[in-house]
């Protein structure tokens, strides 16, 4: 009997397999995936919003593609991300601690990164462990670096990962959108606002 692989929060083990090698496929336009299951995009929106509202430390990790205003679209996305962050802040309880931590570039940092102010794709677990982050969203991170980070996070932490991807999505995230735009990020913020008060923070 074949068992369908599920992309679930870890810690899975030191070197988790890439989800693609386990048969997880990417969503088509208008879809997302949750734990590797293809779903309509709105369902993914609702699930992502719930994760943000449930998490003790809901966190957004913006990458270089949105941190740097290298074109108009990037600047608009940055505005939308800030709006999403502010919305999460407004919609959670005082016991929850939202964070917005940048991934400014991908170089390995010496002697070490400061996990309170940044995340690095070569050891994203350090930032997640240090801040006790239990749900995070990657946005504006180049595909390869996002895949690398998502796998490391799945391997070594229990953090729920969401990818707001501008391309075809990420199998290695627990929940992924594709074709991200500023509007789509704003829509996610609307979902967070819509579900405010209806989702209790996790007790784990």
């Amino acid at each position: 009997m074949t068992v369908q692989y599920k992309v679930l929060p870890g810690p899975e083990h030191y070197l988790p397999p890439s989800a693609a090698s386990m048969g997880i496929r990417l969503p088509d336009p208008g879809q997302g995936h949750i734990n590797g299951r293809i779903v309509p995009e709105e369902e993914a929106m609702e699930a992502a919003a719930r994760q943000f509202l449930m998490a003790k430390v809901p966190t957004i990790f913006p990458g270089p593609l949105v941190l740097w205003a290298w074109n108009e679209k990037a600047a608009k996305k940055a505005t939308a991300i800030r709006h999403l962050y502010e919305t999460i802040k407004e919609c959670i309880t005082p016991s929850q601690k939202p964070m917005l931590i940048p991934m400014p570039d991908y170089r390995p940092k010496y002697p070490k990164i400061d996990p309170e102010v940044e995340i690095n794709p070569n050891h994203p677990n350090l930032t997640i462990w240090h801040n006790k982050i239990d749900a995070c969203m990657f946005v504006g991170v180049h595909c390869h670096q996002a895949n690398l980070s998502l796998k490391i996070i799945r391997g070594g932490t229990n953090c729920y990962t969401i990818a707001m991807c501008a391309q075809a999505g990420h199998e290695d995230a627990m929940l992924s959108f594709r074709d991200a735009t500023a509007d789509k990020i704003m829509r996610l913020a609307e979902w967070v606002r819509k579900l405010k008060g209806s989702v209790q923070p996790s007790e784990n």
């Binding site: 740097w68 205003a69 800030r82 400061d114 102010v117």
Partner: peptide, 21 residues
């Protein structure tokens, strides 16, 4: 990256580590 592109998105400036600012 050419000069006109070396600028941080204004909404993200405050969260960037100081060496980038």
């Amino acid at each position: 990256m050419s000069l006109e592109r070396i600028k941080i998105a204004p909404e993200m400036f405050d969260i960037m580590p100081p060496e980038y600012q």
